[in-house]
């Protein structure tokens, strides 16, 4: 049966505020002071400049993007509107799950709105990448268990997945449902989906 989870539509936005906020904070310890990479600028190697140079050299673009987003979301004057609102959405998503699980034991959905990208295809389009998380993020926000199993190949040979979701601490339902579907699918495919995967060719790393 179909269930309604009206607040899931806000989950993606909330997630991409909470996650970068926490990332900006969690990654602050990578400063070249105690461990790991240390880059010492030649002119004026103060602690602050060493931190700047180390972080500038050590983090990749996506990490920097998230640190910037998170730092902004936690800034004075923006906290309530961004991080604070996102945490409220998180509560609403949890309530949607609670209401849904009063009607059903597990939920099923596509894992992603599209089949897999071609390798490297969207690397310069972070928004498209974020958007592709739309179906998996509610579970992450609510702290509920979820499992994804391969569901087949699209016409162009790229794989798709199906996701099952269960209430908190009911993880074993996911193995039962996932295992049953996997067995049926593998019977119909004549083996695991991975066996149909092409050899990786150039461009793949």
């Amino acid at each position: 049966m179909r269930v309604k989870c009206p607040n899931f539509r806000y989950a993606l936005g909330a997630y991409y505020l909470i996650m970068p906020s926490e990332a900006s904070s969690n990654l602050a310890k990578f400063d070249g002071m105690r461990f790991g990479l240390r880059v010492v600028p030649e002119d004026s190697p103060t602690a602050e400049n060493v931190m700047k140079a180390t972080r500038g050299a050590g983090f990749g673009d996506e990490v920097k993007r998230r640190i910037l987003l998170g730092t902004y979301a936690l800034s004075a004057g923006y906290f309530d509107a961004y991080y604070g609102s996102a945490q409220k959405v998180r509560t609403l998503v949890q309530r949607d799950f609670a209401a849904a699980f009063e009607q059903v034991d597990v939920l099923a959905s596509p894992t992603a709105p599209t089949v897999a990208f071609r390798l490297g295809e969207k690397i310069d389009d972070p928004t498209a990448m974020y958007m592709n998380d739309i179906a998996t993020i509610p579970a992450n926000l609510a702290g509920t268990p979820a499992i994804t199993i391969p569901s087949g190949l699209a016409e162009d040979g790229l794989p798709a997945g199906i996701q099952f979701l269960a209430p908190v601490r009911a993880d074993e339902r996911l193995y039962r449902v996932g295992g049953a579907l996997e067995a049926l699918l593998e019977d119909s495919w004549g083996g695991p989906l991975l066996a149909k995967a092409p050899e990786l060719t150039n461009g793949a790393k």
Binding site: S25, A28, K29, D31, M33, R34, A47, E48, M51, L74
Partner: peptide, 14 residues
Amino acid sequence: SRKQYFYPDLSKNF
């Protein structure tokens, strides 16, 4: 809560 600022004596920088 985390109070965040960068300083070498603050091991997590918060």
